[in-house]
């Protein structure tokens, strides 16, 4: 479903990613592990075309993401729900509106939004904070809003960049269980993390990245660096 084909990305001559080739099938749950600065986030940014690779190509269902015309990018991004490391919530909108925004963008009706958003809010345990603005929420709560926004419009793929970074252990496992459940329903999941415990418990495919290169790619992998 997703194919990174000999991808390299350089910033000012320094390679953040070097010659990465990675194939991800539909419905897979792939963890990408590595120390900070290893290139995990860069890899995910390339997939939603937030950045362009220096060389190589990325295919999503036979469609070359790197060659996609500018006007097509919104439609690519709608297929992918992204949980950003820094949340990227709209500070001018409430928790409810942030989640609703993802549905408005896709053109869902008011009725659908009114049905789905409260459900998702309940799923992440924030039904009582619906009317709060991001700056009135704690880091963990903001992260859960970001998660809710990423999955509310039922995208084909969910990219999660350190989605548990700001959560306490209890919430962390809630989020992981949520991702697993979504995965069971057929959504492809890309999870970037450096949480050893999560990886070792998940028992799913693990891609280890170090200094911009894939050093290990194994099913039922463990966190080894």
């Amino acid at each position: 479903m997703i194919l990174f084909d000999k991808i390299s990305k350089a910033y000012n001559g320094h390679f953040a990613l070097e010659n990465i080739t990675l194939n991800i099938e539909q419905g897979e749950f792939v963890s990408i592990v590595g120390q900070s600065g290893a290139g995990k986030s860069t890899l995910l940014k390339l997939l939603i075309a937030e950045e362009k690779p220096t060389s190589g190509r990325i295919f999503l269902d036979k469609q070359d993401v790197t060659a996609l015309p500018y006007a097509e990018l919104p439609f690519l991004r709608r297929r992918i729900g992204t949980i950003f490391q820094d949340f990227k919530l709209l500070s001018q909108k409430t928790a409810y509106e942030n989640i609703a925004f993802a549905m408005e963008v896709v053109g869902k009706s008011k009725k659908e939004i009114q049905e789905d958003v409260p459900q998702v809010l309940q799923l992440v345990g924030l039904e009582e904070k619906a009317k709060q603005f991001p700056n009135q929420l704690s880091g963990g709560e903001q992260q859960r809003v970001a998660i809710a926004r990423a999955l509310v419009h039922q995208p084909d793929i969910i990219i999660a960049d350190e989605p548990t970074g700001n959560l306490d252990p209890l919430n962390t496992w809630d989020v992981i269980r949520l991702l697993l459940k979504i995965n069971e329903l057929g959504t492809t999941i890309l999870l970037a993390t450096h949480d050893r415990e999560i990886i070792n418990t998940l028992n799913k495919r693990v891609v280890s990245i170090d200094k911009g290169k894939v050093i290990r790619d194994e099913q039922n992998g463990r966190y080894i660096l």
Partner: peptide, 18 residues
């Protein structure tokens, strides 16, 4: 002052006119 919001909207998949 709202430039970050614009970037976020784009990354979530909003079209320019939206």
């Amino acid at each position: 002052t709202l430039k970050d919001e614009v970037t976020i909207m784009k990354l979530v998949g909003a079209t320019n006119w939206f």
